[in-house]
Simulated assay, not measured.
Amino acid sequence: MQVVIDGAGRVDILVSDRLVIEVDGRAFHTGTAFDEDRRRDFELVTRGYLVLRLSYRQVVHDWDRTCAGILALVARNEHLWSGRGPHEAVPASPA
C-alpha cells in the first residue's frame, strides 16, 4: 500500500514499520526524477528506513529471487523498528 512519509513523500510500498520498497521503470525514473529518487532514498535512510529500489525487470522477470530476498529481510525483522525509533506514515489517498 502506498503511504506518504514526511520529508520523502509517497512511497510505493511500506512493509510493516520501516521497509520501503520502490519499483522503478525507465519511463518515470530518469533525468531529474533519478536525482529526486536518490534525494528521497537519502531522506528515508537518514530517518531509519530500509529502502529497496527494485527495477521492473527484478519484479517481473526475476520475481522468485527478488521475493526470496525480501522474505529474508522480513525473517530477520528488518521491517520492524526494533528500537530504531518510531515514525509516522500516513496512507496515501488514491491517485
Rank of each mutant, 00 (worst) to 15 (best):
L80R: 08
G25D: 12
R26G: 13
E36M: 03
R26V: 08
E88V: 14
I5P: 06
A72D: 08
W81A: 13
V11S: 04
T46F: 09
R53V: 13
V45S: 05
D35S: 12
D24N: 15
I5E: 00
D17S: 05
L52K: 00
D37K: 05
V11W: 04
V20W: 08
R40Y: 02
H29I: 03
F28S: 05
L50I: 14
A27S: 15
L52S: 02
R57L: 07
N77V: 06
R10W: 06
E78Y: 06
D6S: 12
A92M: 10
T46Q: 15
F28N: 08
G69E: 06
P86K: 02
R38I: 13
D64I: 10
L71H: 06
A75D: 15
G25T: 09
G7T: 01
G83M: 11
H87F: 10
C67P: 13
L80P: 00
L50F: 11
H61R: 07
R65N: 10
R40A: 00
S93N: 14
Q58T: 04
G7M: 00
R38H: 13
A33Q: 13
P94H: 01
A89Y: 07
T66H: 10
I5F: 07
R53K: 15
I21L: 04
A95F: 10
W63R: 15
R38D: 13
R84W: 11
P86H: 03
T30I: 12
G69L: 02
H87Q: 12
F42A: 15
T32P: 09
G69S: 04
P94K: 00
D37T: 04
Y49D: 00
R65M: 10
D12I: 02
L50P: 06
V45K: 03
A75L: 12
V4H: 03
D35W: 07
I21C: 01
R40L: 02
I70N: 04
L73H: 11
V51N: 02
P91E: 05
D6G: 09
R57C: 03
D12C: 01
G25R: 09
V20Y: 09
D17T: 07
H87K: 08
I21Q: 01
A89N: 12
R84M: 11
L52D: 05
E22D: 03
R40V: 01
E22C: 01
N77K: 14
R65W: 07
G69T: 02
G9N: 05
T66M: 09
V59Y: 00
W81R: 14
R84Y: 11
L80Y: 02
H87I: 04
R38S: 09
I70V: 14
P86Q: 07
P94L: 03
A33V: 09
R18K: 14
R53H: 13
L73V: 05
G7F: 02
I70M: 03
D12S: 03
V59R: 00
A33K: 11
